[in-house]
Nucleic acid binder design. Structure first.
Lengths: 141, 141
DNA sequence: TTTAATTCCTGTAGTGGCTACAGGAGCAAG
DNA sequence: CTTGCTCCTGTAGCCACTACAGGAATTAAA
């Protein structure tokens, strides 16, 4: 059994974040010592580590809650997990593509900057009319 | 001269977001009509459009404020702009690399899911000890 | 001209996922 | 017994918005 500091060390989750997860009901409330301190079992620490790893993989908390409830079931249906993971993969791929577009746009804009002290063509073209106007209500991330 | 609705249309910035930018001092306060409505000049709309384009490129507001103050100067020093843009490019590239790592990790995890209804190896390995433990206080985005 | 519809106003609160305090209490070592 | 560490609760801040509520002003139609 461990205090929150040890639980934080072992799970890799910040102490404040652990308390936040508890407040939000993302992980169950642990037991308390006589003095009112949180006491974590190895199982509870494993759960925190699980949440941390999922966050590291970029999953939002809402999905992680689904994962956690699936791990509670005996028949933790793999199909559902796979679907969620694949949707998340799609989102990651979309983000990568989006960032690549940004990179290209930025590269071509900043390549015109000649590093002198004169008027900046990058700022100019961003300020001008009709530059990147495919304003058809597209993906505002 | 235009009301906020037209300014929103022409700049591509949401009405609520325009008011937010004003509250935060990101763009200057426009004039008002007799009835108290905001009235935008074409220049002010250009500024809003500039902010929107920079946001589309992924620049944070703090950087955009620097850009805006540079556009106010006569000698809008290109060097500074270029440096900021290149730093931003580095961040974008780092994000892309990070996402690619996530993608690989997710792919290898979910590839073990056999889409059946049995215990899920992905959830299992995320719950187990000693999976991805390079816990040396690394980049928590 | 009256009414109905639309646009605008201010102010406040919520989003996600934490992080950072302030002000106090518990607890172990010297 | 004091020092210093860890822990407690509660609240506020971060970023960049977004979404109301409740009312006023303007415009268009009848």
């Amino acid at each position: 059994m461990f205090t929150i500091g040890k639980a934080s060390e072992q799970s890799g989750v910040n102490i404040e974040t652990i308390r936040y997860y508890e407040r939000e009901g993302i992980v169950p409330r642990p037991g308390r010592s006589a003095g009112g301190r949180r006491i974590y079992s190895p199982d509870e620490i494993a759960k925190l580590r699980f949440v941390r790893r999922c966050r590291d993989l970029g999953f939002p908390i809402s999905i992680i809650q689904t994962f956690l409830s699936l791990t509670e079931q005996d028949d933790r249906s793999c199909g559902e997990v796979k679907t969620l993971a694949e949707n998340h993969l799609d989102e990651i791929n979309a983000k990568i593509e989006n960032l690549k577009c940004l990179r290209e746009a930025l590269l071509s804009l900043s390549s015109n900057c000649d590093d002198g002290t004169a008027a900046c063509p990058m700022l100019d073209s961003l300020m001008k009319d009709g530059f990147g106007e495919d304003r058809s209500e597209q993906s505002r991330h």
